[in-house]
Each structure stands twice: as structure tokens, then as C-alpha cells.
């Protein structure tokens, strides 16, 4: 039998074999249901803004997004979000609630290092890449469309 301690490639293959498989069906189902439910809640909130707060249908997205961010942030601050996210995975991470969670969890955590150096500097530690790549994409796409 091969001495795997001298054979990194063979060891890595064995390690890959021994990895327990995630329960794909359960994860996909939960992500679908929770993600769908969060979006449905967003739709409900948006309808309320249109009906009772007189927002025009194409401008109601802003207060809706802000409300969903508030909800995601509150669940994060009260320690509930990560318990749901453990099961829901992408169901809570992909909607804007996940964006809120990444910012509020960082703000909470780094409070220990003070508000300027902790909260202020590190608030976007996790969400920053989404903003950076979003902006870069918008710039490139905008440039291409302006040149066409």
C-alpha cells in the first residue's frame, strides 16, 4: 500500500473521499423556501408602502429595501439571524437581509475595538467586496453602453 504521508496528491484524494456530503436536497429546499418567504415578505411590505404611504410603485423599492435591511439588522443584533442562517444558508444570505447581516454583525463584533477604529473601519469587512464589484461592474457596463 502506498505511504500517503509522502504522496500529497493521493492523500488529498483520500481526504476528499472522506468528506461527508452536505445534504444537498435539504439545503436547496430550505434555501428556496426561506429565500422565497423573505422575498414574499418584501413584496408585502412594498405593497403596504404603495397603498398606505402613497409611494409610487416604481419608487416603493427604496423604503422596502431600507425596511428589509432594518429587519435583517435587528435579527442580527438580537442574536437570531445566525440561528436561522445556519439552516437557511443562501435563503438568508442572498436577499438583502444577508447584506444587512454582514454589516451589522461586523459593527457589533468590532465595537470592542472602539467606534472609530472598530465599528467605523471594519463595518464593511464582509460587505465591501459586494459594493466594490458592483460598482466596478456598473462602471464597465456603463462605459460599454455609452460607447456603443
Amino acid at each position: 500500500m502506498k505511504n500517503l504521508l509522502r504522496d500529497p496528491k493521493a492523500y488529498q484524494e483520500l481526504a476528499e473521499q472522506k468528506k461527508p456530503r452536505p445534504n444537498l436536497a435539504k439545503n436547496l429546499f430550505t434555501a428556496f423556501v426561506v429565500g422565497g418567504a423573505i422575498c414574499t415578505l418584501g413584496q408585502f411590505i412594498q405593497n403596504i408602502y404603495i397603498k398606505y404611504f402613497n409611494f409610487a410603485p416604481d419608487r416603493a423599492g427604496d423604503p422596502t429595501t431600507a425596511t428589509m435591511i432594518f429587519i435583517g439588522g435587528l435579527l442580527t443584533a438580537t442574536g437570531v439571524f445566525d440561528k436561522i442562517a445556519r439552516h437557511a444558508g443562501a435563503g438568508t444570505a442572498v436577499p438583502v437581509t444577508g447584506f444587512a447581516n454582514s454589516i451589522v454583525s461586523a459593527a457589533l463584533e468590532f465595537k470592542r475595538e472602539g467606534f472609530v477604529l472598530g465599528v467605523g473601519s471594519k463595518m464593511f469587512a464582509l460587505a465591501g467586496s459586494v459594493i466594490v464589484f458592483g460598482v466596478v461592474t456598473a462602471f464597465v457596463v456603463g462605459l460599454i453602453s455609452a460607447l456603443l
Binding site: 452536505p22 442574536g79 443562501a90 457589533l108 463584533e109 469587512a125
Partner: peptide, 17 residues
């Protein structure tokens, strides 16, 4: 967690390994 991985209230889903 806070040093090696994520803030403690971050909603990460850990793999089974």
C-alpha cells in the same frame, strides 16, 4: 471565530466537515 473566521453574529452556514 472572530479572529479566524467571521464575526460571531454573521450568518454563515458551516459545511458538515
Amino acid at each position: 471565530e472572530r479572529q479566524f473566521r467571521y464575526p460571531t453574529e454573521y450568518g454563515a452556514q458551516l459545511p458538515p466537515w
